[in-house]
């Protein structure tokens, strides 16, 4: 299990990296944290001729607050999600979900951008990006475009990125101070990719009526699952157990998962519903707490 030969570049600026991507096109691959790409290289399941290592581009590692949004540079390590105060205060869901990604050693290297572009069907960050309508800032030597998360993920391990393109930033909306959130998942073993996971953000008004529900599920389709109709179920409603049961049933019904070594499609459907209910309940409780803190 040794990686095949490749040519190696470690540019220090985004522009240099983009030039290399343009020059080598399909033959090149970006190397970010390496926590998904290097295993593939070691198994010789990926064999790019050129690796463009972007670890030396200092400009891609940042967390910034821009009026109401949180901009995270693609090379920001997953570990920063756990430690950054700005992230905790503006989008605590990212902080809480970070510890679900692998292990400390993985998060020390693995990046936010790498996780999104790798587009594993059970990546936590992909679920959050989809649930929160994150915006992906993409650059090539030709220019820049922004793609919404809902359009970014195409299928298993595939995004809209062209070979000459690089994800440079992801922008998450800041969560309302009164919002509550949760990420619930089922794993076989601690730190593994989830079998099924559900993330949700619940916003309540002063009367504890739900004004907004965001919900995305992973492990149930090729890309994170989100459904406006399901999210609408709680709109303007007090959250009750029977309403949640109905919602859970809808989730189970609507998702279209697969059977693999570790779980059956039926089991995944069931779990998606159960975890949705559990996550919403947890998020609701957190939202109520936040409401109390506010008043």
């Amino acid at each position: 299990m040794k990686p095949p030969k490749f040519d190696y570049f470690d540019p220090t600026t985004v522009e240099e990296a983009l030039d290399l991507l343009k020059e080598y096109g399909e033959d090149a691959k970006i190397l970010a944290g390496g926590q998904s790409l290097v295993p593939l290289l070691n198994f010789r399941l990926a064999r790019p001729q050129v690796l463009v290592d972007i670890n030396r581009i200092k400009d891609l590692d940042y967390v910034r607050e821009n009026n109401g949004t949180l901009a995270i540079g693609a090379m920001t390590r997953q570990r920063t999600l756990e430690t950054s105060e700005i992230i905790r205060s503006k989008c605590g869901l990212l902080t809480d979900a970070a510890e679900l990604i692998g292990h400390p050693q993985i998060r020390n290297r693995g990046t936010v951008g790498g996780s999104l572009v790798h587009a594993d069907p059970t990546a936590e960050l992909a679920a959050i990006a989809k649930a929160l309508d994150a915006q992906m800032k993409i650059r090539s030597s030709e220019g820049e475009r922004t793609v919404a998360a809902k359009d970014f993920f195409v299928t298993v391990m595939t995004t809209v990125l062209e070979p000459s393109e690089m994800l440079v930033e992801v922008e998450f909306p800041a969560l309302a101070p009164s919002a509550g959130w949760a990420f619930e998942e089922f794993v076989l073993r601690h730190g593994d990719f989830a079998v099924v996971g559900v993330t949700t953000v619940v916003t309540l008004d002063a009367k504890q009526t739900c004004t907004e529900l965001r919900l995305a599920a992973i492990g149930v389709d090729e890309t994170p699952f989100r459904d406006p109709e399901i999210e609408g179920l709680l709109q303007g409603q007090k959250i009750t157990d029977s309403l949640l049961d109905e919602l859970a049933a809808r989730v189970s019904e609507k998702v279209d998962p697969f059977t693999d070594l570790h779980a059956t499609a039926e089991q995944r459907k069931h779990l998606a519903g159960v975890l949705a209910k559990k996550a919403i309940k947890k998020a609701e409780e957190a939202a109520i707490l936040n409401l109390k803190k506010e008043s």
Partner: peptide, 11 residues
């Protein structure tokens, strides 16, 4: 008795 087998038995 992994989750897959146990869940399927229960189901």
């Amino acid at each position: 008795l992994n989750p897959k087998r146990v869940w399927t038995l229960i189901h």
